[in-house]
């Protein structure tokens, strides 16, 4: 469903931006309150729930045993998928996966994959014969803005608590999945003409393009995505990249203190 954008909202967001203010009183580079809960889903091999303002996202990890790809006989695989089902909000409709949900899953997937936080070689059971497939499913149950950051946070936090269910597959004893890095996503949305961190639902409704940045432990970029209509200048990007370094450090500490392997 296409959401109606009230003209007054866009006008108000522009007025506030001109004064350096936001609708909910936050500053330009301020995030909403975040709560992270891990190991919260029975049956998932690793799980997390993120409550980010009024946005709520679950992530659950499952394993399967499969044949390796012919060109990588001793590597397992990782796949992140996201579902944006109608429970998440009025604008979501039932049906096959929407382009929005596929984009969300893939952007989160790239950040985790490219950070190298999982050694795919460690997921090999018998070279050339069987490997583990790790699947991270993201389930957005309440979208009040910035589901990207919430989903990426839930996914890495869930992976960090994951126990490889080897005994279930008769491939050994259950053991923690080895995660060596903590990639973190930080997203920005153009609202009232300038970028802000962690847009809420109103800001997304009355805003323009968004940029998602995933950074690794060393501050290196691992995934970027620009979504929705709009253009931005190199100078704008340089500024948000700098802001994201700080924010990713804060979130990384949160994930690391939530516990895990």
């Amino acid at each position: 469903m296409v959401e109606l954008v009230p003209q007054l909202l866009r006008q108000e967001l522009a007025d506030l931006a001109a004064m350096g203010k936001r609708r909910d009183g936050r500053s330009q580079w301020e995030s909403r309150h975040i709560e992270l809960e891990v190991d919260c889903l029975y049956n998932a091999d690793g799980s997390a729930k993120v409550t980010w303002g009024d946005t709520i996202v679950y992530a659950g990890v499952k394993f399967e045993i499969r044949q390796p790809w012919p060109d990588r006989p001793s590597e397992g695989s990782l796949m992140c998928g996201a579902e944006l089902r109608p429970i998440a909000g009025k604008k979501y409709e039932p049906g096959p996966p929407s382009p929005e949900s596929i984009e969300l899953g893939r952007v989160v997937d790239r950040g985790i994959r490219e950070s190298g936080c999982i050694d795919l070689g460690s997921l090999c059971v018998i070279p050339g014969e069987s490997v583990y497939g790790v699947m991270v499913d993201i389930h957005v149950v309440s979208d009040s803005g910035n589901i990207f950051d919430a989903s990426a946070l839930a996914a890495i936090a869930a992976l960090r608590t994951t126990i490889v269910p080897a005994s279930k597959f008769d491939t050994g004893e259950d053991h923690p999945l080895k995660i060596t890095k903590t990639p973190i996503m930080c997203s920005f949305t153009r609202v009232g003409g300038r970028f802000v961190m962690d847009a809420n639902a109103d800001e997304e409704l009355g805003g323009d393009e968004r940029i998602h940045i995933t950074l690794g432990d060393d501050g290196h970029l691992h995934s970027l995505q620009k979504g929705l209509k709009g253009v931005f200048s190199p100078a704008e990007f340089a500024e948000i990249l700098e802001v994201s370094q700080n924010q990713c450090d804060v979130l990384r500490k949160m994930v690391e203190s939530a516990g895990g392997n």
């Binding site: 699947m135 499913d137 279930k168």
Partner: peptide
């Protein structure tokens, strides 16, 4: 719409 999340069961369910 009754739906089981992919991670809700012992073996993953295809969405």
């Amino acid at each position: 719409r009754y739906n089981m999340a992919p991670f809700s069961t012992s073996d993953r369910i295809r969405p």
